[in-house]
Every structure is written in structure tokens, then in C-alpha cells.
Computed example of a mutant assay.
Amino acid sequence: MARRNSGTGDGRFSTATRLRLLGEQTAARVYRSQTKRQARRSRLTGRAAFLALVVCSLVVALAYPMRQYVSQRGDVAEQRERMADAEQQVERLRDEKARLQDDMYVRRLAREHLHYVLPGETGYIMIDPEAAEQRRNDEGSADRPWFSNVWEGVDDADRD
């Protein structure tokens, strides 16, 4: 006993009309929710783009100072190492200065390096013939005593 709407104004619609109205309402709801989502998505996209722009600006703005900071930290570390080396050298030189204040130490250095002898002593230098020949063949005169270089120069001048 389905009734059909014959237009009598009883307020009831036919099933097809009801389905059509229901479909239109559903479509309108879906459209509204999609536009809200798109509006929300476009706002988020705009916010995200602005945030990305701000982050990129900060990275670009901070890149050079950070590079300078890291470079200067390396320079500071290098200078600290040089300062520590210099302090060690100063300490060694102070020790050497203190030793040079001792007359016995100075005499020992003069005997070892300059082959000094005290009055009344006779100094001897023993030369190994093979070592002398080898030294003569070697071009480097830095590891010989200074007086050997002087006498060699005199001998060379005498030969010419």
C-alpha cells in the first residue's frame, strides 16, 4: 500500500523525490566538507611554505657566522697548542740559563765542543784513518768539528 504523490499537498513525497533530495543534501554536505578540507589544507600549505621560508632564511643567515665560529675555534685550538709549545721552550731555556750560571758546566761544554784544555794539560785528538777518509769523501761538513772545516779550507787553498 504504497501511495504515490499525486500533488494533493499532503506533505509526503514520493520515494524518488526523497532519494533525490537525500542525494542532493549528501552531495551538498560532501561538497562543504571538501571545501572546508581544501581551505584547511590550503591554509596549512601556506603556513608550511611560510615556515619553510623562515627556516631557510635562518639557515642562510646563520651559515656564515657558524662557519666563522667553527673556523675560529680551530684557530684558537691551534694557538693554544703553539702557546703550550712556547711555554715548554721557555721552561727549557730557563733551565739552560740556570745551568749556564754554573762555571763547571760551562767548562765542560768548552771541553766537549771546543776541545779546550786547561793550562798544563796536553790535548790529543785521535783520528781514525778510515773515518777521516770517509769524512773527506762526504760532502757534508755540518757533522764535523769547526776546526776540521777550517783546516780543510787551509789545505784546499794550499793545494791551489
Rank of each mutant, 00 (worst) to 15 (best):
M66I: 14
M66A: 15
M66D: 11
Q68A: 06
Y69A: 09
V70S: 06
S71P: 05
Q72Y: 15
Q72M: 13
R73I: 10
G74W: 04
G74Q: 02
A77C: 01
A77L: 00
E78P: 05
R80E: 08
E81S: 12
E81P: 02
R82M: 04
A84Y: 06
A84S: 08
A84C: 05
A84F: 01
E87S: 06
Q89I: 09
V90D: 12
R92I: 10
D95R: 14
E96R: 13
R99W: 07
Q101E: 14
D102H: 02
D103H: 10
D103G: 07
Y105D: 00
V106G: 04
V106A: 01
V106S: 04
R107K: 09
R107S: 01
R108P: 01
L109I: 00
L109V: 02
L109E: 02
A110L: 09
L114Q: 04
L118Y: 11
E121I: 04
T122A: 11
T122E: 11
G123F: 03
G123H: 02
Y124P: 05
D128T: 04
P129W: 00
P129L: 00
A131G: 04
A132N: 06
E133K: 15
R135D: 09
N137Q: 15
N137I: 03
N137G: 09
D138N: 11
D138V: 06
E139T: 12
E139N: 12
G140H: 12
W146M: 11
W146R: 12
S148I: 14
